[in-house]
Design a protein around this nucleic acid. Structure first.
Lengths: 202, 202
DNA sequence: AGGACTGATGTGACTAACTGGCGTATCGTA
DNA sequence: TACGATACGCCAGTTAGTCACATCAGTCCT
């Protein structure tokens, strides 16, 4: 679909981007994130190092790019929520819709396992998910008639993000159920107990 | 007191450490964290760069060293709690005891302001505080007769750390009350609403 | 005191993640 | 086809962080 509308130039760019990511992931899985240099990835993907940097700002982003996309996805789902519920319910529903499908899970899992197994990447992932709190709070605030710095709202969002963090980590390690959705459903119910969860969400 | 028991060697080492930190902070405040190189700090403190690296593993640690100490402090307070309460109460009490005294707050504030104003440092601080969750959970788990991977317990700890994060950030920016203790007291009450907060803490 | 041990410092060489500039080739478009 | 935009390769430079080695000051034992 989209490939038809894209010019040759953009297709090549995306192909490059994909080639970089897949080669990088392969090398990282083989030799460990810290033991593969950007030069080696460039070599293996038959590209110059500067092309890599043009597509991915940092080495970590080679692995974490998907995660950034998933932030956008979550924000989109939340923004599309019709409202007319409590925030807690809205977050729960959004999260359940956000969980990847079973086959997408399979693709993600090895990548996530790499992240969890690499301290630097795990830290970056945590940091990244913590970074979701601000935009989510910004999205929630007006619809709950609270400010973006409202403490209870911030705590609610933080708990949401923390729950995502915990689930993802446990899921990647294999402690969670095979279908991450079941696990998520149970996990997120704790959100309901926060006082701010009872706020109207319009 | 302690200075008497320390030999000249250790005193010099600590003096170096202190000199490095203060010069670094001064330069960072003046020119911005990203615009000061380790070499410049070494020059200004009349030391070699390798001495800096020996005392602080990364450049960020020059600023965040205090925060690492405060983690130890919090863990110590929690470990020293007599027990016989719910986890929620224990955490609340520990947190109130953990809040620095008014004059210590003043010293910390400019440092924290630097962190909050520097994206790289803010991210590292968040990451660091998220890193507290594991040891806190590890300390809590046996006294609550839960495992370290217990979901509710992890969520409780995560909410605690998130609250700390939020309070510190708001306090540094100046949105919080002058005495961070008052703010903390209000903030942490949200912890009480989590189901795991009712667990016995022995 | 004096001599041996320990440990911190300085020096210099090295790796690798980025950054920015510049010429060139390729693609979209008038 | 000619022109403008954009991505790529190449390259030179900056800087964080590591490592090995020599040196020197403190400590401790005799």
């Amino acid at each position: 679909m989209t490939e038809m509308t894209l010019g040759r130039r953009d297709r090549k760019r995306l192909a490059n981007r994909h080639a970089i990511r897949t080669t990088a992931l392969r090398l990282f899985m083989d030799s460990g994130f810290d033991n593969v240099s950007i030069e080696e990835i460039a070599e293996a993907a038959d590209l110059s190092a500067s092309t890599i940097y043009r597509n991915f700002p940092t080495k970590e982003d080679l692995v974490l790019a998907n995660l950034a996309d998933r932030q956008q996805s979550l924000l989109g789902i939340l923004a599309a929520h019709p409202g007319g519920a409590t925030v807690g319910q809205a977050l729960l529903e959004a999260l359940l819709e956000w969980v990847p499908s079973a086959d997408a899970q399979h693709l993600l899992r090895s990548e996530t396992a790499l992240i969890v197994a690499t301290p630097a990447l795990l830290a970056r992932m945590h940091q990244m998910i913590v970074g979701w709190e601000a935009p989510i709070t910004a999205l929630l605030a007006p619809r709950c008639e609270r400010t973006e710095t409202d403490l209870e709202l911030c705590q609610l969002t933080a708990l949401l993000c923390a729950t995502i963090r915990i689930i993802v980590r446990e899921w990647a390690v294999g402690n969670a159920a095979d279908d991450i959705g079941d696990f998520g459903r149970i996990a997120v119910e704790a959100l309901q107990h926060l006082p701010a969860a009872e706020l109207a969400f319009n």
